[in-house]
Design a protein around this nucleic acid. Structure first.
Lengths: 342, 342
DNA sequence: CTGTTAGCGCTTTCAG
DNA sequence: CTGAAAGCGCTAACAG
């Protein structure tokens, strides 16, 4: 391994001078600088970042803690975060919590000992609060993305789940649907709660009575849609839903699969809408009507805010960015059964 | 920041004893260990990994260098790599080269200075050789995934592109297609070359003459499919393809979009097959006939081999794992035009 | 079983 | 503009 001492010896200067050259310090004679730079190149010297971190307390690594990179939503969050990180000279550490609080906690501990400069944090749910408290105690900057946690002060970038839900349900209503079911994600996430609020509010304002029997809650990751569908289909004909609002894209997929098993076709026999688009596939064989979120921006802006916190630029007050979802109407909510009934 | 000195003072032992406790060294009196551990917990001590790395030359970070996390294929590679890394106590640094050699080189330089323990490397193409040489020179272990590079010695995990191509083209032939076009990725990747070889070989063995005019090469990331489709459609009727073998999933999507612009419907007017599935969406609205690769395994096994290299376990000889693709026949290659013609 | 010493590679501080 | 000394937090090597 080449060190500044090797460079120094060969250049007949002190290690300190080499350090100054590396750090682009001013107050260096041009000829000295050139001589040193030549030798650095010649020997292929690379600064040892462990030694630097030991002094600077900075690693230039930020952690992206999400629930699952495999979800196209988070894939794009990751891409946005990575692009911004790279631009600013940071690297991105990837962690999947799998919506599991223990796994999340394990990662938090790994992150703390790795000494990341900050955490871009999509919490699995309200239980994440204890992990966030750990970060606060350790003085590690973080920015929340996608899901809000009550009582935690930080910058946050998320989507308007309430508004998206409202517009999705309005769309179903406008298609003539009366019995609209909600199959939501777990209510320990702010997004699920907001989506439910939007759902209930829209039904209320539309004079569509909402019934507990039409409202279900399942996990984002485990597929337990079969049970729910079983229950929904066993309702008396006049109460049975003709449309389903799924909490997110994965739930929608599982719901559709469960429906298909029962011989129910989407959209002919059942309309489906959900949150989160399926890029990049949605571009060519579009099927699901969705409230698409600017996932890339969540990552990009989140990383930007985080880096500003790390570097001490950026405002005193916490920023809260709420991005509007875009409703994209596709086949899954445009069945034949209700066409023209409006 | 809490250090071993703080712990030592409070426990009335030497820093070295604290260090031994942290590292689960044997030869520690049980009472001492317990006393120290209690204080570690009390003060919330976390070992400083920069200081450790400075001595051990290990960061317990491995880099995943891929072309684009946004491609579902690489998303799953990443997931596999991360799962294995976590199991073994490593963290994963994410880097997207975007099929761009300069970006890839930039990342290699960042990695070198971060001091990662190893690189799980999906090279953008043959140009990556110079970056691989850099790693070799710096003595950083790496494992290749997905794409092979001539003249580089290392463990490698990849798919059988030749075999997959053969079987996709045979499938098209069996559907009655005579004029089968190839729209391949850039020939500076081993995968594209192998797929082309499989394509040519199958046509030859099937006594289907292959023509230069039916063979095209485009980028994986830039969408230049429109030009190619324009050219293919302008061929005289008896030479015009009725089926297209696309080099990968992204190319297939762009090809389908380009066809649609021209009013050509898939699969009725044109059959399409390609490499790489579109998980997780393929599960419910399946459309493309594909040669699906075990992307997760590439990442998982690749990470395993890499960690074995890092830790000096594992065999002397380089391992070469070639995983067979699975052909999944779906709508996109089952059009009406040729049905029953066989 | 425990402690002392030295040093990993770099930068801060102070002196010239 | 340049250098010497000290130390970041930890552990290897040796001593007891």
């Amino acid at each position: 391994m080449v060190t500044i001492y090797d460079i120094a010896k060969k250049a007949n200067v002190s290690p300190m001078t080499v350090s100054r050259v590396i750090n682009n310090s001013s107050n260096i004679k041009d000829t000295t600088r050139q001589k040193v730079e030549a030798i650095i190149k010649e020997l292929g010297y690379i600064p040892n970042s462990a030694a630097r971190s030991l002094i600077s307390k900075r690693t230039h690594i930020i952690s992206l803690l999400i629930t699952d990179i495999t979800n196209p939503f988070f894939t794009r969050v990751a891409r946005g975060a990575e692009d911004k990180a790279k631009q600013s000279g940071y690297q991105l550490l990837l962690s999947n919590s799998d919506e599991n609080i223990d796994k999340e906690t394990e990662y938090i501990n790994m992150l703390l000992s790795t000494g990341v400069d900050g955490v871009l944090y999509a919490p699995m749910g309200d239980e994440s609060k204890k992990n966030l408290r750990t970060l606060v105690k350790s003085n590690i900057p973080f920015v929340l993305i996608d899901r809000d946690i009550q009582g935690i002060q930080s910058d946050i970038v998320l989507g308007d789940s309430y508004e998206g839900a409202r517009r999705l349900v309005e769309h179903l209503r406008d298609q003539g649907h009366k019995n609209i079911a909600l199959i939501n994600g777990p209510s320990n996430t702010s997004t699920a709660r907001e989506r439910q609020r939007g759902y209930e509010e829209t039904l209320r304002l539309s004079n569509l009575p909402y019934k507990k029997k039409l409202m279900w809650e399942i996990q984002y990751k485990e597929d337990t849609a079969d049970d729910v569908i079983e229950q929904l289909l066993s309702l008396p004909k006049n109460q049975r839903p003709t449309a389903i609002f799924a909490g997110n894209n994965f739930i929608a997929v599982n719901v559709i699969k469960a429906l298909n098993k029962k011989g129910i076709q989407v959209p002919d026999d059942m309309a489906i809408v959900c949150f989160d688009d399926f890029e990049p596939i949605s571009g060519f064989n579009p099927f699901l009507t969705v409230a698409a979120q600017s996932a890339y921006s969540y990552g990009y802006m989140g990383a930007q805010f985080l880096i500003e916190r790390i570097e001490g630029t950026g405002p005193k007050e916490n920023r809260r960015i709420v991005l509007p979802p875009e409703i994209i109407v596709r086949k899954s909510s445009l069945g034949y059964t209700f066409k023209g009934r409006k």
